[in-house]
Design a protein around this nucleic acid. Structure first.
Lengths: 303, 303
DNA sequence: CTCCAGGCCAAGAAAATCTTGGCCTCAGCC
DNA sequence: GGCTGAGGCCAAGATTTTCTTGGCCTGGAG
């Protein structure tokens, strides 16, 4: 007969933390998703378990496993948070009808998207937000409209459009190129590459009969655009991604010393979350997939 | 090209505050629902509007009206929170499979439910939580399994079972009853009533030809059970609710001086939220609707 | 055998949230 | 016309929730 003792519901944040932890199978993944530390997730989950009166996870040495109770509860909880996410997404679309958020690899953002940005904004009157992230976002949960990544397939729950092949081939200044006739000549050169793409050079060399070549020097850059700057400055030979060095090649500032001897890499893809606002964004997607040329509008982009 | 500037989603609490405010058409109602002050709701809504970049409510002098944006957004948001609520409810059921939470008018809790509670708990091995509240809870949102209120109908979204008629008729100690032959004799008595049911006496008097009667004295009690105690002590004549004075009548401690001259009031109803755990609770509901006699089990109450 | 990933905990810091109390505006009503 | 009450707004400060830090513990992999 407790007068005021209402059974207060658990905090929404605790529910969200548990849901994320269960989905990721651990606190670390959940923490990353929610942009907090694993300990914070742990605290929240513990609080929820206290509210419930029984554990939701079995704590094993190497991670977490849902208890039967947790397994029973998870689906409806996940569905609810998906619905909530959808509502928030719709809300943002209502609030900023002319905004577009694109997630992309830093180098793609800088070297492929940035040059096209003015035309894109002009063509559609958009406020574009660019998120540069090394990993693809979770399109179902993050407030991201489109992704721009290289890969052989779209992540689950997304469709994709191939925007450009992304062949690999060496590029350098014309001056350096003069001394490069055969792949073997690279042994005397400085090879430039992006540190997250350290496999690029070995792949190309192996494909062109120089798998055992040990270059005179190497230089790794954590940002591809810095590596590109180095190549432009004549510091060495960069393993070029076609989509990213096209500009420099077109202007003649860089050349491909070995011509069309390329190896194919995963293409540059425009990632489109399914079930999202595909409708609203269709003209933008078309524009991008047609190469980003301005002034190609069939009608008003938004209705 | 903002590196870390992710478009952080709005806080879950802000979303909930807005949803409640929109549903109630004002901060006051929402504040009551969420057990905070209206100012807190206002702050949250303002924060959400700031995140959105546009207002969700038109502020009128006498209240709030949703803007078109707000109206667009509300349905999906409400649906999401309904889903979340359902998940929480399911969670609690998983965590405490033998618990039952009943909301009831204080007087009903005390005078009708409390006497039956031991048998109920014994019959079903339940942990019963009783919430005494003057107003019916929001069954869709509060963590309440059943309600016990008088009324002519179940609230929206609920079904109900009539547990007992709730006729009104005067009751008093046998000693006092000796002086009461006709309704008119009440003019010389002290009339007892519950302050939230101040209409009871006038209704009965009007129905029995004493509409203009002005009693010698009146006494109002904020708790019906206290009024009942007063009647038991011989302080006056209580306007009795059949469901609540049955015990005292049965024991002979009170009598009905005018016999079966009663007026019908809204019956006592057991409120059962739809779509909830009707299944799980079916045996309990049957037991209660059969008058709360113990030992009438067809099978295990929970599966 | 050592290292590492991943979880746990406690203490303190930071942030979100709530309350208070005063102000303003309007509608309804003397 | 002036009063009154409902309902919203705001700022300041208190409170509660949530997060981080840093150290500890465990079991599996190299």
């Amino acid at each position: 007969m407790d007068q005021g003792g209402r059974p207060s519901p658990p905090s929404l944040n605790a529910l969200r933390a548990f849901e994320a932890a269960a989905r990721h199978g651990g606190y670390v993944g959940a923490a990353k998703e929610l942009h907090v530390t694993p300990a914070a997730i742990g605290t929240q989950v513990k609080g929820l378990e206290a509210w419930l009166g029984r554990p939701l996870f079995h704590r094993l040495a190497n991670g977490l496993v849902l208890t039967p109770e947790g397994r029973d509860v998870l689906p409806s909880l996940s569905a609810a948070f998906d619905a909530l996410n959808g509502a928030v997404r719709a809300m943002r679309a209502v609030g900023r009808p002319r905004s577009l958020t694109v997630a992309a690899l830093p180098c793609i953002a800088q070297l492929w998207l940035a040059p096209r940005l003015p035309d894109l904004q002009a063509a559609f009157d958009l406020d574009v937000t660019i998120l540069t992230r090394d990993e693809q976002p979770d399109y179902a949960r993050d407030l991201v409209d489109l992704g721009l990544y290289v890969g052989d397939a779209a992540p689950a729950g997304c469709t994709s459009v191939v925007l450009a092949r992304d062949d690999l081939f060496p590029v350098c200044t014309p001056a350096l190129a003069a001394g490069l006739r055969h792949p073997g000549d690279l042994a005397g050169a400085t090879l430039l590459h992006d540190s997250v793409w350290r496999a690029d050079w070995p792949r190309w060399l192996a494909a062109h009969g120089a798998g055992t070549l040990r270059p005179a020097r190497e230089a790794a850059f954590s940002l591809y655009s810095v590596a590109l700057d180095a190549a432009l400055a004549g510091s060495g030979v960069l393993i070029g991604h076609r989509a990213l060095v096209a500009d420099a090649l077109g202007g003649g500032r860089l050349v491909a010393p070995f011509g069309d001897r390329a190896v194919a890499g995963p293409p540059l893809r425009l990632i489109v979350p399914e079930g999202g606002e595909g409708m609203r964004l269709a003209p933008v997607i078309r524009w991008l997939s047609e190469g980003g040329e301005p002034g190609r509008r069939d009608g008003p982009p938004f209705t």
